[in-house]
Design a protein around this nucleic acid. Structure first.
Lengths: 244, 244
DNA sequence: TGTACATCAGTGAACGCGCGTTCACTGATGTAC
DNA sequence: TGTACATCAGTGAACGCGCGTTCACTGATGTAC
């Protein structure tokens, strides 16, 4: 019994020091890649650095990843995952509001704020998650993008409670995500980078308000919609044509 | 006279082949940097490559730029400039609409569409313009960001014609820019990267519609504004407090 | 239970590359007289 | 107008670096008998 316990403890706690064989090098490399991304963004995610951080020879990494591109894809996946988890945690930490409309709208704003704050608090992870290259689609759908799944649910809720008109529902995830993502980028690396924090806060608040307004009961007349759509390009939808 | 003319022609047309001295190497390097950015994004902008493209030794570049960081900053500036110019050209190419509200709203949507199309048509320039690092604020304000100046004017116009309520004007540039920038990023490098073109077109149309709606006559009740603001974080503005 | 052996996860040395940057220099330009 | 000379924009060679990737290898693991 005691011996069994000891053996289990060894298996659980000391796989890294078994010497020659690592035991779980693939996961160790994935975590190392994420750590490098956190500290220095996508450019810091290199095969050699990840191997170094995992305490292993560069060659060893090639047993588990085909090469640099695959390792970077892994890093991106890790970063996206952390972003999604952060948002989900924040949402769950909030008590439900009695009024369902209040609740749904509050949740959407919370998700947006958390998204932007994550970008500013973890720039390396955020930049890596949305960096160019690497494959981000070769994962099972459900964990491929928790963020997206969350957004879909939030907007469905807004429709269910009667705040978001059904005719405005299509692609609403995209519009909401775009506003938050763009603001995060502008604050992080763009022209709003060096602006003082209170201005950043106000920018966040006002942008989230505009998103809420854009999804609310406010309407454009069909005529004005036409004007916007004409300017918006070839593939524009005829949203007023099929009212729920 | 004729001699004078010939000398002028030589000065204008053949400075590159004067042999030892280049004549206008700084500008040549700036253009080379932009060219590299266009073809391969910010990572391709290197001192050596720019010198190579300008037909000059790497060392020569150090006569004109302190080092790699300064050259990259120059590249960013060039890219931002091209983006601004593209939008301005597109706006100017449109005939004014008789109805001033139509006109102002159409202009905003056009600017947004052009912005996104530029990102998709010139990914290298776009990525470089908004890449991390380098200084983007050490330029005179007016040319530092034509895009921003254009947006400010467009939104002022929306207020002037009575479409955008004065109380929604503050930071409206930020909200509008964020939506377009975010959508461009999501389409270019994000989860919408591999989506078919018609879907992209619809995403653009619907997002621009949402922006228009967000700026339009639609309203959130003060109560709902409070809900959003509470969730939006510490520095949120009290916009309904000071109605024009 | 003990031994022979196949497997395969790791090592260690090496390759070629392009990069940023520095050095001592050279030769064209333009100015003072 | 011609010459002497200072200036300074360019050259060419070299440095040290970290990278991705490949090679032949070694030694731990686990399975067949």
């Amino acid at each position: 019994m005691l011996m069994g316990v000891n053996i289990d403890l060894m298996k659980l706690s000391a796989p890294a020091k078994r010497g020659y064989h690592h035991g779980d090098l693939r996961n160790a490399l994935a975590e190392s890649a994420a750590q490098l991304a956190r500290e220095g963004g996508p450019e810091s995610v290199t095969v050699r650095a990840a191997a170094r951080l995992a305490g292993v020879t560069p060659t060893a990494a090639y047993r588990h990843y085909a090469g640099h591109e695959e390792l970077l894809a892994e890093a991106k996946h890790q970063c996206l995952h952390q972003l999604g988890e952060t948002i989900e945690r924040e949402l769950r930490a909030q008590p439900a509001l009695p009024d369902p409309v209040h609740n749904a709208l509050r949740n959407l704003a919370t998700a947006g704020r958390t998204y932007i704050e994550f970008a500013l608090a973890e720039p390396g992870l955020f930049r890596t998650a949305f960096s160019q290259g690497g494959a981000i689609l070769d994962r099972p759908v459900e964990d491929r993008n928790t963020t997206f799944a969350i957004l879909v649910a939030l907007l469905d809720e807004l429709v269910a409670v009667g705040f978001l008109a059904a005719e405005h529902r299509p692609m609403a995830e995209v519009a909401a995500w775009s506003a938050c993502h763009g603001l995060a980028m502008l604050l992080l690396d763009g022209p709003l980078r060096d602006v003082p924090q209170p201005v950043k806060d106000e920018a966040i608040g006002r942008t989230l308000l505009a998103v809420g307004r854009g999804f609310g009961t406010g309407k454009l007349t069909p005529e004005l919609e036409r004007v916007v759509l004409d300017a918006a390009g070839p593939g524009s939808p005829p949203p007023a044509r099929h009212p729920g």
